[in-house]
Simulated assay, not measured.
Amino acid sequence: MKIVSQIKQPIEFEMELFEKKFSVAMSSKVSLLNRITHYVVNRKGKQMRPMFVFLIAKMTNNGEVNDRTYRGAAVIELIHTATLVHDDVVDDSNRRRGFFSINALWKNKIAVLVGDYLLSKGLLLSIDNNDFDLLKIISVAVREMSEGELLQIEKARKLDITEAVYFDIIRQKTATLIAACCAMGAQSVNAPKSEVESLRKFGELIGTAFQIKDDLFDYGDEKIGKPTGIDIKEQKMTLPLIYALNTASEQEKRWLINSVKNHNKDKQRVKEVIDFVKEIGGLSYAVTKMKEYQQQALQILQTYPNSPYKESLELMVNYVIDRKK
C-alpha cells in the first residue's frame, strides 16, 4: 500500500473532503438503505477512480479543483458502486474485496434495489447541479460497460474471439470507466475539448494495460506464486490464451478449445493448458502488449509540465503494471 499512499499524497486534502461529501451524497431517509450504504462506504477499496479525477483536474488546472470536481468524483463512485452491486448479483458472488457482498447479506432483491438507488443518486447529483457535460461522460461509460459485458458473454459461448474483439471487450468493460474518470477530471475544470479527449485516451490506455495485467495473474509468476487458472475455469478468453490459439497448430488448437470447453474443471488439464500457453509465448506476448499501452499513456503525460500531480499519475501508470494483485 506504500505506493498507493505516495500516489495519494498531493491530493490528500481533496480525498478526505471527498469521503465526507460522498457519505452525504449516499444518504437516504430509509434506515435500511443507510445501513447498507454505510456498509459499502466502510469497505471501500483503494479508491483509484476518484484519485484519477482529482489528479487529472489538478494537473490540468494549476493545482486547483472546484465543486464540480468533487461532484464528478462522487458521480463516478456512486455509479461505479451501483454497477459493482449489480455485478455481484449477476455473478452470484458472495464476496467483494474480501467482505460479504450486499446480495450475500441482504439477498438479491435488496441488492438490485440498492444498485438502482445509487444509480439514481448519481444521476440526480449531476442534474440538480446542471452538470450535464459530466453526466454525459459517465452515461457513455455505463452504456459501454454493459455492451462489453454482453459482448464477452456472447463470444465466450463460441470461443471464437479474435485479438481485435478481445481489445474491444476490455476497452468497454474495464478501460472505459478509467477513461471516464480522466475525462471527468479535465471536464470538471473546463479544460478545452481536445485536452479532455486526450486525457480520456490516457485513461483508456491505462485501463487496457490494467486488464492485461489481470489476465497475466491467472497464469501466476514467481512473485504471485501458484497460477490460479480461474479465467480458464470460467471459459474467459484472455490475451495469452488468444495468442496461443492463433499460434498453435490445428491439432493443438483443437486440444486447447476442447480443454477450455469440456475439461475446464479438471485441475491437471487446466495446468497443462497454462503450461502450453507459457511455452508457446502467450505470456511474453501479453507482457509486450501491456508495456506498449503503458508507454503510450506515459507519452501523453510527457506533454505536461512537471508537477506533483503529473508525478503521481506516472506512478499510477507504473503501479498498474507492477502491482502484485
Rank of each mutant, 00 (worst) to 15 (best):
V270E: 05
E234F: 05
I161Y: 07
I212Q: 11
A186N: 10
D168W: 00
V260Q: 11
Q251S: 11
F210S: 03
D275I: 05
R254V: 08
S188M: 07
I212L: 13
T238Y: 05
I178Q: 05
G203Q: 06
E234P: 01
K253L: 02
L241N: 06
Y219F: 15
Q172G: 12
G148V: 08
F217K: 06
Q211A: 06
T174Y: 02
L239F: 04
K265E: 15
E250Y: 07
A156F: 00
E250Q: 13
P227M: 13
Q172P: 00
N246L: 03
L177M: 14
I161F: 05
Y166S: 07
V196K: 04
V270F: 10
K201H: 13
K233V: 02
S259G: 09
G229A: 12
A248T: 04
T238P: 07
E272Y: 07
E154N: 07
F276L: 08
K271T: 14
D231F: 04
L245T: 06
I178A: 02
Q152I: 00
Q172N: 14
S249K: 12
G225T: 14
F202C: 05
T228A: 15
C182L: 10
G207Q: 05
F210G: 10
F202Y: 15
I230S: 15
S194P: 00
Q187Y: 06
L256I: 07
D218M: 03
A209P: 08
L241M: 14
K193T: 14
N264R: 13
V270G: 12
L216V: 10
V189H: 08
K173Y: 02
E272S: 15
I280C: 04
K155N: 11
I169G: 04
G148H: 04
Q235C: 14
S188H: 05
M237I: 05
I169A: 07
Q268D: 14
G185L: 11
I232Y: 10
A183H: 00
D275E: 15
L159G: 01
L199R: 00
E252Y: 08
Q172V: 00
S194R: 06
F276K: 03
I257H: 08
A186W: 08
L159N: 01
A248Y: 04
K236I: 12
Q251M: 01
K261L: 14
I274P: 07
E234T: 02
K173E: 03
L199T: 02
M237W: 01
E195H: 00
L256N: 09
Q235H: 02
E154Y: 13
K236M: 06
Q211C: 05
K201G: 04
N246M: 10
I212W: 10
T247F: 05
N262I: 01
K158C: 05
E149D: 01
G185E: 12
L199K: 03
Q268M: 03
